[in-house]
Every structure is written in C-alpha cells, then in structure tokens.
Design a binder for these strands. Structure first.
Lengths: 188, 188
DNA sequence: AGCTTTTGGCTAACCACATTAGCCAACTTC
DNA sequence: GAAGTTGGCTAATGTGGTTAGCCAAAAGCT
C-alpha cells in the first residue's frame, strides 16, 4: 500500500474546505478521509479525534479572519476602518461558513493556544479600528463586545438564512455599520 | 405494562427542559426517554424524530420569547421599550440556553408553521419597540435586522462563554443598548 | 358486558459514525 | 542493509438514531 503523504495540516485544511462545502454539522470523519484519499481510522494518525479537528479548524479560521481584518484596516481610520473591518469579517464568514461555525463555542486552553493567539490578533484589529472614535479606555471593552456581537449576530443569522424580510441583506449590513458608527460618534 | 400517559407536549417540554440543563448538543433521545420514564423507541409514537423534536422545541422557545418581549414592552415607548425588550430577550436566552439554541437555523416551512407564527409575533414586538424612533418605513427592515443581530450575537456569545475580557457582561449589555439607542436616535 | 379498533408501550434489530486495537509495509536513519 | 519509526490498513467496539413488529391497555361501539 503506497503512502498518501498526508500530514496534520493537509487533513485540517481538507476538513475546513469540506466544512465550508457541506456545512459543519455534516462533516464526518468518513467524508474527510475520502477527501484526502485514505480510510477513516488513518486520520487518527494525524489528529486526536473530532473535537481536536474542530479546534484546529477553528484556529485556522480565526487566523485567517485576523489576517483579513488586519489587512483591511491598514491605512484607514474611523468609520473607514470600521467599515472595512466589518466587511472583511462578513465576507470571510459568508465565504467560509463551515470554518466560521467551528469557531463558535471553542474554549481556549491557555495563553499559548493558537486559538487564543488568533483571537487576540482579531481583537487588536478591531481595537485599532475603534481608535479614532472617542471611546474612553473604560468603555473600550464594551465597545469591542458591541462590535463583535453585531458582526457575529449578523453573519450567523445570514448564513443560517435567518432573514426572511424583503430588504436587501447587503444594504442592511451597510445600514447596520452606519448605525454603529453614529452610536460610537455621538457622546454619551 | 402500564402506560406512561405521555403526549406530544409532555415530550417536547421535557426535552426543552433537558436541553436547558445539559445543552442542546448533549440532548439524546435516550436522555429524553429516561426523563419521561419510557424506553427510547416509544418516543417515536409522539414525535417523528430528532429533527422534528428540535423544531418543536424551537417553536416553543420562540413562542415563549415572543410572550416575554411582548409583555415587557407593554406601556413603554422609545428607549424604554427598546431596553425592556432587549432585557427580556437576553434574560430568556440566558435562562433557557438549550431552547434558544434549538431556534438557530430552523427554517420555517410555511405561513401556518408555528415557527413562522412565533417569529412573526417576536418581530412585531420589536417593531412596536422601534415605533417611537424616527425610522422611515423604508429603513424599518434594516433597523429590525440590526436589533436582531445585536441581540442574537450578544446572547449567543455570552452563553457560549465568548467574552473573556474583564468588564462586567451586564454592563456591556446596557452599554450596547445605549449605543443602539443613540444610533437610532440621531438622524442619517 | 363483550367485541373491535386504536393507541402507546415494549424488545429486537439495523445503520451510521467515532473511535480503538493491533498488524504490517514503507520510509528514515545510521 | 538492519533497526526503528511512521502511516497506512482491517477488524472490532460502543453509542446513538431509527424502524419493524408484537402485544396489552384504553376507548368506542352494540
């Protein structure tokens, strides 16, 4: 039997791609194995199990999200930066719904966990995007949570087909960004 | 063998309670059966399967959420109404995480689907809460989606332990409501 | 009451999927 | 090229959802 030349990264990226295609819930070990050209039990030579695989997909997704938002805000400030970051985030979630779903509910195990590192980078991007607004240091955590909540909520609702009403979803997103911008701009 | 005197509603409410206790992901047919005092296959005399059970839990949860927010906004308007509705919604999600999780991603099958009816009632509550703001009819859909995104995002992130930072989560929620209020209050 | 029908339990069995055990060939290393 | 390590494999186990088919209890009828 010839070897497949597999390694951990190959398994994880294949699984992530598959999750985007068929949905995270439909991602089975058998499907991943088939995709990489191997029998199911062989996957366990590279990953510890489904839970482990999910965490690695999540780490990949968070790293990619942090990259995308980080790039998007370069050279921008204020509403410009916020808009760019929000769009980059949403684009990622819509083009990679399976990967993103894998990030929901993952707990970071420690400060050196790749998940924690990627989340930290993502948070820094949004912190940078908020820098030009007049948010006091005391309120920064609140503002970050607010931005994160709206991005997470909008993206997951849309990718779950949660919006039935008639209006154009892209328009709603831009409207939402403008709402947040006004909310951040006007003083308490 | 004596009968357990079960019916569909009893199975669904037991399953919903169990989902809140152990988490939706850990809800198995065996667990539900044990809770209602019956063997697993007997459940299928009352529900069509796990998918069907999930939909029925979702319908229950949405109805309860619509009740709670509807009651909360009675006799209130403007920021008062928005705050009351938002708090009621969040309270429900935090006290019933399993039920709420069941509502994510459910598709309504038609206009007479209990899920569609409950979602319509919930939307009406929030529409009423927004009435005192100066939102044009054209923007109403956008505003509703914005509020829904915020609430959904915040509630799910919190119930998934998504907030690591130090600030008090309840404070963040109030801050978020105030942000949305400002955003809705100031003109475009 | 007795007879029939429907209903709601049950056991047994099946299937899909994750995972483990244990074998063996293929690379790697010295 | 011998020895060790690695990465495949088949076989088997366990859990969970679901179906089939049996049978007694409730409900309805005469």
């Amino acid at each position: 039997m010839p070897r497949a030349g597999l390694d951990r990264a190959a398994v994880v990226t294949a699984a992530a791609a598959l999750a985007d295609e068929v949905g995270l819930a439909a991602l089975t070990m058998g499907l991943v194995a088939e995709r990489v050209g191997v029998r199911t039990p062989s996957l366990y030579k590279h990953i510890a199990g489904q839970h482990d695989l999910n965490r690695r997909i999540a780490a990949l997704a968070l790293t990619e999200t942090a990259d995308a938002t980080g790039t998007a805000i370069q050279g921008r400030a204020g509403q410009d930066a916020l808009t760019a970051a929000a769009r980059a985030f949403r684009d990622f979630v819509l083009t990679h719904p399976g990967r993103y779903a894998a990030t929901i509910g993952v707990a970071e195990t420690g400060p050196d966990d790749p998940i924690a590192i990627a989340e930290g980078r993502l948070l820094e991007s949004f912190t940078a995007a908020l820098r030009a607004y007049d948010v006091s240091p005391h309120d920064l955590d609140h503002a970050l949570r607010a931005v994160r909540s709206f991005l997470h909520g909008f993206a997951t609702l849309q990718s779950a087909q949660g919006f039935r009403r008639s209006a154009h979803v892209g328009d709603s997103f831009e409207w939402l960004i403008a709402l947040v911008d006004r909310g951040l701009r006007f003083p308490l």
